[in-house]
Amino acid sequence: MSFQPKFEVVVSQSEIWSLLRSAAEEAARAEPHLGSLLNATVLSHGDLAAALSFQIARKIGDNELAAMSVREVCTDAFTADPTIVAAAEADLQAVAERDPAIRSLLQPFLYFKGFQALQASRVGHWLWSQGRETLAFHFQSRISELFQIDIHPGARLGSGLFLDHGTGIVIGETAVVGDDVSMLHNVTLGGTGAERGDRHPKIGKGVLLGAGAKVLGNIVVGDYAKVASGSVVLKPVPSGCTVAGVPARLVNCPTGAEPARTMDHTLADVVFDFSI
């Protein structure tokens, strides 16, 4: 028996909030035990920004930093920089397009730690940009404890990102992640030692990073490249190419139009033996 997905791909970001509300309403009817949760997190709010600030606060608030304080910080961030909420909309759209397991937008919003860690990290980055480093580090610590995803608040993250599963992802302070990137669990964007300064990878637009991929050092992974699962990348990767292995070598050029969107982790049947 073939599996038929229950969720149609989102057409535009303008639909995100209405689709999320509709999914919450349907879920509340189907599962009354979760009615209070769904009302508190989605249905009682007028827009995605309000719901998102509540959800982040609900998750990372603790005895040291109460949920109400976290929500106030999130609201300040969203007001000062509306692109944070726009990025969250794009991230939800990315999950809808790229995750075949999704049933509705309610799943990533309430339960997918990759999505939730991203949104809290965006607030942490805003704090970092305002010079509020101690609070930014507090956000990072809580995100790491809760979601097992460690993103330095100094890292610059694009929009339309998809952290599939999320567990074990590490992104260093001077890393840059472009728009529309997909990465799986245990990806590391790290340094090569104890050097200081600009020391972390720059990931281009539309890149696919497979499970367990390690990209180390201040190197560029070009737009629409693919890094195969388990690879260790120590040299720049040309745009549109696939690398694989330890250490990583070029195995296919061109890779394909948009590997992060297709989520195609396969390698070419013919492997080319040339180094990068």
Results as ranks from 00 to 15, higher is better:
V220F: 02
E97N: 13
V73S: 12
S44V: 11
D273R: 07
G160F: 05
A27K: 09
T79V: 04
G206T: 02
A211S: 14
P100N: 10
S14K: 15
D264T: 09
P238M: 11
R249D: 15
G114Q: 07
C253P: 08
E15V: 01
G240K: 10
L216H: 03
L146E: 15
L65M: 14
K205S: 00
G256Y: 08
C253D: 09
A228Y: 11
I203L: 05
R29P: 13
E195G: 10
M263H: 04
A40W: 03
S239W: 01
K6F: 06
N252P: 00
N218Q: 10
P5R: 11
P236M: 08
E25D: 07
A136E: 07
E31Y: 14
G114V: 01
E89Y: 05
V123Y: 03
I16V: 15
K113M: 03
P238H: 12
D76L: 13
H165R: 08
A40H: 06
H138C: 07
G131T: 06
A96W: 03
I169N: 11
I276L: 10
E89M: 11
E89K: 15
S239M: 14
H200W: 01
H33C: 00
V176A: 00
D180Q: 11
A87P: 05
L135M: 14
S2L: 06
D164I: 01
Q140H: 02
L208E: 02
N186L: 10
P254D: 06
A88Q: 10
A228M: 04
S12L: 08
I60F: 09
S229P: 14
I60M: 06
D47T: 13
D76R: 15
I219F: 02
H152R: 03
I149L: 02
L234P: 15
V237G: 08
A248D: 01
K214N: 08
L118M: 07
N63V: 06
L267G: 06
P247F: 12
T167K: 00
E25Y: 03
A50C: 11
Q148G: 10
E133K: 13
D179C: 00
R261P: 06
L52A: 13
N218C: 07
A155K: 00
L48N: 12
L110F: 09
R142T: 02
Q4V: 12
D99Y: 04
I143P: 00
G240Y: 04
F139G: 04
G160C: 04
S159G: 09
R29E: 13
E25R: 15
A49S: 15
V123S: 00
E64W: 02
Q130G: 08
E26W: 00
T167I: 07
A27T: 09
A90M: 12
S144F: 05
V243E: 07
T188N: 00
